[in-house]
Design a binder for these strands. Structure first.
Length: 844
RNA sequence: GCCCCAGUAGCCCAAUCGGCAGAGGCAGCGGACUUAAAAUCCGCCAAGUCAGGGUUCGAGUCCCUGCUGGGGCACCA
């Protein structure tokens, strides 16, 4: 900025400005100055011309609920460090932004305001977009997308149809999780402790005909491919996914349910899943899930009334009550007997709610001696307990404690004498040979319930015809657009989708027979939208398919994904599933979409998550107004390692602002010209600079961003000292140091760094600069301090050459008067020498 | 109940392979500059690493036990 312009500005902002405008740091001034320059230069749009190695950095895209908040500020600050570092390192970096813009809040707002959800949604997106721009992120805005745009959801629907063709999208009538408040079904993953993940309302069960994705078919691949992610994803996220998929090895064993004496029920085969086939001889009763159809099929006529009554009782329980593991065991005898295929023993068949209808086969053989749940049930109903594995523990029947450890099999005919593991193998062998069972693997994972009875989502592109049944909407009729004439109350949840009431939309001609038909009125879970958005960024305007497969080949997988751990299972598991299906469709050539994952911590205030109800929220906009963008970003990054929480009450944005001003002022004191040879400069300062470069690079790569900032502070301090009390501002080493400060700072504080870069006489943008190379010669010290210990305690320090020989160091150490005094004539047992830094003398 | 992570100055946090407990910041204290204040600059202060045990010449770091805090899972046969 020229002096004339400065003077002009001074009059505009008052008399005091004249004193400060020239040489004082003003975040407001620099925030106003640079965004237009960045836009004009197009710094953050990747070249995509193959001239550089490509890297894809992605932050989980936001949901447009109001303006950005402190959480966004932290997450995006972290992702930007990586994107900017890689750009400086010479990579062609893709760092796009978009919005996950379908979802319930928009609908609720529309109902309240008698408006259309799009109005609220796109207004919020505009607000957030402006805030993102202010926040100085190195984003490529040319690829911006919104999942609620018809051009986007057209392809969400297209993908649904491809899944449908492959048998991966299907409908079934099944008891599902139902949120009474949101009036919609929920996926298993969206039920937390028996309550709706979104609103906290206790979830109930409801039998409904719903759409599912067959994610279970990919359970083994979702599990196995995690090997690729180990070391690159946080261990706890992998653990949570492993846990959620819940692979367990065991056996399917067929039991024969005997016909009733009066012939009212005939003989029937029922399969159980067990992980403990070694305990087959210990089975003393048989249980089926009370809410499964199987219970009603099996029940003997004289017990039917009792079962019906029990089922009513079970239905009345909330999910929260049902999941309480301290509950007394309940159940009802079905009047039937199951024959153990190994022992031939007859076992009474019971129905109980501790057996789950949708895990395994919904039926179990109960082995009370070796399973705590079965034992609790046996004791409640006076059923026999028979130990078949001698673990050395006391009899479970007496103690009430089932024994689950290792031991030797007893009372089990052909299995006697075997260990647990041998018994499992042998029992599987026997049932397989007899044709009454087989070894198998079972998963905890359930299919993904994707239909929602809400308006603001991608309509499911299926038409129901009386003649042809389910008919997919032909590709050339996509997208199935949402009607835009529904308002307010018309969108209110009624238990069925609001779309059902839009008669003009619902009634269509069947694409196959032309006869009268109705559109499917459910919309897709918004997690479907977000399961493939990272691919759409690669070719956001592509019209031949959801994405350009060539672009996917160039850019995928995402090299660094950044987002909150709250998506550990939901979004990340679904996206992994989608990727695997796309691979099978030969649209992509990789198995995992996100090669590396970083979970940023939360922003707390006073030890607690910010929330309206606690009234401890901190407004991001106010923080930015008060301290400036760079100071807020710096505070986020400096406070702690990225994955740790930041407590806003514990940190100091004003301290950050002070540091930034201090760094910026260095630029005012550099008097050498750009391009001077730093080799002529002060060696001590150069040594600090080059050490900082070396360390900062390693630290960024290790994601220790907070330490990078600390190193930058050290360099700033050293440079200030060199200017004021050393070689002075004209020394070429000072220029080199300040240029390094600008480049490192650009990772976190782009405005300040850019302004500093300009003050040093460089053309914008600092984002186009290169991460400096360090000179290893400058990292070598003239002397190092060797520590001399006696028995591990420091007794002397010696200044020695870094390449001192072990023997010489040993002699020097032993000659130390301090050492001699401490040794006090005692002999020496050993001397450990780690030249050049340490000697440890062990006295006799 | 089971599994995972973390405990270092008053506070937030550093500390390659086990090798001098301290890099950086906040707060505090003192000084310089100022008529004064703000801003700025300089300096100072501070823990022996949650507790106990073990391995080692040497442990914040490795092993065991416990305590505290945080997170995940939880009738999944």
């Amino acid at each position: 900025m020229s002096e004339q312009q400065t003077a002009g500005n001074a009059t505009a902002s008052g008399a005091d400005a004249a004193i400060t405008a020239e040489n004082a740091y003003s975040f407001a001034a620099i925030e106003a100055k640079w965004p237009a320059v960045w836009d004009q230069l197009g710094v953050f749009t990747p070249k995509d011309d193959g001239s550089r190695e490509r890297r894809y950095v992605l932050d989980m895209f936001p949901y447009p609920s109001g303006d950005l908040h402190m959480g966004h500020a932290e997450a995006f600050a972290m992702g930007d460090v990586v994107a900017r570092y890689w750009r400086l390192k010479g990579y062609d970096v893709l760092h796009p932004i978009g919005w996950d813009s379908f979802g319930l809040p928009a609908e609720n707002a529309a109902i309240k305001r008698n408006a259309h959800p799009a109005e609220w949604t796109y207004k919020n997106i505009d607000t957030q977009a402006a805030s993102f721009k202010r926040y100085g992120l190195s984003l490529d805005w040319t690829r911006r997308l919104h999942t609620s745009d018809p051009e986007y959801y057209r392809w969400t629907q297209w993908l649904f149809l491809r899944f449908y063709e492959r048998g991966l999208a299907y409908r079934k009538n099944h008891p599902v999780n139902w949120c009474p408040k949101d009036q919609t079904v929920l996926a298993n993953e969206q039920v937390v402790n028996g309550a709706c993940e979104r609103c906290g309302t206790p979830v109930t069960k409801k039998a409904l005909n719903q759409w599912y994705f067959k994610i279970t078919e990919y359970a083994d691949r979702l599990l196995d491919d995690m090997k690729e992610l180990e070391g690159h994803w946080p261990e706890r996220v992998l653990a949570m996914q492993r846990n959620w998929i819940g692979r367990s090895e065991g056996a399917h064993v067929d039991f024969t349910i005997e016909a009733t004496g009066d012939g009212s029920r005939s003989e029937q085969k029922v399969t159980v899943f067990t992980t403990r086939p070694d305990t087959l001889y210990g089975a003393t009763f048989f249980v089926v899930a009370a809410d499964a159809d199987l219970a009603s099929e099996l029940v003997a006529p004289e017990q039917a009334a009792a079962l019906a009554e029990y089922q009513d009782r079970v239905k009345a329980l909330s999910e929260i009550e049902r999941q309480n593991t301290d509950r007394e065991k309940t159940g009802v005898f079905l009047g039937r007997y199951a024959v153990n295929p190994l022992s031939g023993e007859k076992l009474p068949v019971w129905a109980a709610d501790y057996v789950l209808a949708d895990y395994g086969t919904g039926a179990i053989m109960a082995v009370p001696a070796h399973d705590q749940r079965d034992l609790d049930f046996a004791r409640a109903f006076g059923l026999p307990v028979r130990a078949v594995l001698d673990t050395g523990d006391e009899d479970p029947a007496a103690t009430g404690m089932a024994t689950a450890g290792e031991g030797t099999i007893v009372n089990s005919g052909p299995l006697d004498g075997l260990s647990k593991a041998e018994g499992i193998a042998k029992a599987i062998e026997i049932v397989e040979a007899a044709g009454t069972g087989e070894g198998t693997v079972n998963y905890r994972l359930r299919d993904w319930l994707l239909s929602r009875q809400r308006f603001w989502g991608a309509p499911i592109p299926i038409i129901h015809c009386e003649v042809d049944g389910e008919v997919p909407v032909p590709d050339d009729q996509l997208p199935v657009r949402l009607p835009d004439d529904l308002r307010g109350e018309q969108l209110a949840p009624k238990g069925t989708s609001p779309l059902a009431a839009a008669e003009h939309w619902v009634n269509v001609a069947c694409p196959q027979c032309g006869g009268p038909a109705r559109r499917d009125t459910d919309t897709m879970d918004t997690f479907v939208d977000s399961s493939w958005y990272y691919l759409r960024y690669l070719s956001p305007d592509y019209t031949e398919g959801p994405f350009d497969t060539a672009a996917a080949k160039r850019w995928m997988p995402v090299a660094q994904y950044v987002g909150g751990v709250e998506h550990a299972i939901l979004h990340l598991l679904y996206s992994r599933f989608f990727t695997k299906v796309l691979k099978d469709m030969e649209l992509v050539d990789f198995d995992e979409p996100f090669a590396a994952l970083m979970n940023q911590g939360q922003v707390l205030n006073g030890g607690k998550a910010m929330s309206k109800s606690l009234g401890n929220g901190v407004d991001l906009g106010e923080q930015l107004d008060q301290y400036g963008v760079d100071a807020v970003r710096l505070t986020m990054v400096f406070a702690s390692p990225p994955e740790d929480d930041v407590d806003w009450a514990d940190v100091s944005p004003s301290g950050s602002a002070k540091f930034l001003a201090r760094a910026w002022r260095l630029g005012q004191d550099v008097t050498s010209e750009p391009g001077v040879d730093p080799a002529q400069g002060d060696r001590a300062l150069r040594s600090v600079t080059h050490r900082t470069i070396a360390e900062a690079g390693e630290l960024v790569e290790a994601h220790k961003f907070n330490v990078v900032v600390a190193k930058a502070m050290e360099l700033v301090n050293a440079t200030r000292k060199a200017i004021d009390a050393g070689p002075g501002g004209s020394d070429p080493a000072v220029r080199e140091a300040v240029e390094t400060v600008a480049i490192i700072l650009s990772l976190v504080a782009p405005y300040t760094a850019e302004d500093l870069w300009a003050a040093l006489g460089h053309e914008p943008s600092v984002a186009n600069a290169s991460w400096p190379a360090y000179d290893p010669a400058l990292l070598v010290e003239d002397t190092v301090t060797a520590v001399v210990q006696v028995q591990g305690k420091v007794r002397d320090r010696l200044e020695v050459s870094p390449d001192i020989a072990e023997a010489e160091l040993r002699e020097l150490a032993l000659a130390s008067p301090n050492v001699q005094r401490i040794l006090d004539g005692r002999g020496i047992r050993t001397v450990i020498v780690r030249a050049p830094k340490l000697v440890n003398i062990v006295p006799a």
